[in-house]
Computed example of a mutant assay.
Amino acid sequence: MNPKEILFFICLCIPFFLLTVWAVVNAAQKEFGSLKKKVLWMVIASIPFIGFMIYLAFGFRKGKK
Rank of each mutant, 00 (worst) to 15 (best):
K62N: 04
L56Y: 14
N2P: 04
I50H: 06
I50P: 01
F58L: 06
V24E: 03
M1V: 11
K36V: 08
A57F: 09
V39P: 01
F17A: 08
L56S: 12
T20S: 07
L12P: 03
I47W: 05
T20M: 09
I14A: 11
M1K: 11
K64G: 03
M1G: 14
K38S: 04
L19S: 08
I44A: 10
L18C: 10
L12S: 15
L18M: 12
Q29Y: 11
I6K: 07
F60E: 08
K36W: 08
K37T: 05
K30D: 06
F32E: 02
A27T: 01
A45Q: 00
M53N: 04
K30S: 04
K65P: 09
L12E: 09
K36P: 00
A23D: 02
R61M: 14
V39T: 13
F52A: 04
G63T: 03
K30H: 12
L56K: 14
S46V: 02
L56F: 14
I50F: 12
S46P: 02
K65G: 09
L56G: 05
L12I: 11
K64H: 09
R61F: 14
V25K: 09
C13I: 12
F16K: 09
R61Y: 14
K4S: 13
L40D: 03
R61H: 15
V21E: 08
I6P: 02
L56N: 10
L7T: 14
K62Q: 10
N2H: 05
F32Q: 04
G33V: 05
F60C: 08
T20E: 02
F58R: 07
W22S: 03
F8K: 15
L7V: 14
I14N: 12
P48F: 03
C13F: 12
F49W: 08
G63S: 03
V43P: 00
E31F: 12
V39Y: 07
S34C: 13
I47L: 07
S34T: 15
L12F: 15
L18N: 06
L35W: 05
K62F: 03
K36H: 07
M53W: 02
P48E: 06
K4Y: 13
C13M: 15
N2E: 07
F32G: 01
L7M: 14
M53Y: 05
E31S: 15
F49D: 04
C11V: 11
K62L: 09
M42A: 04
P3N: 14
N26R: 11
F52E: 02
G59S: 08
F60Y: 13
I14G: 13
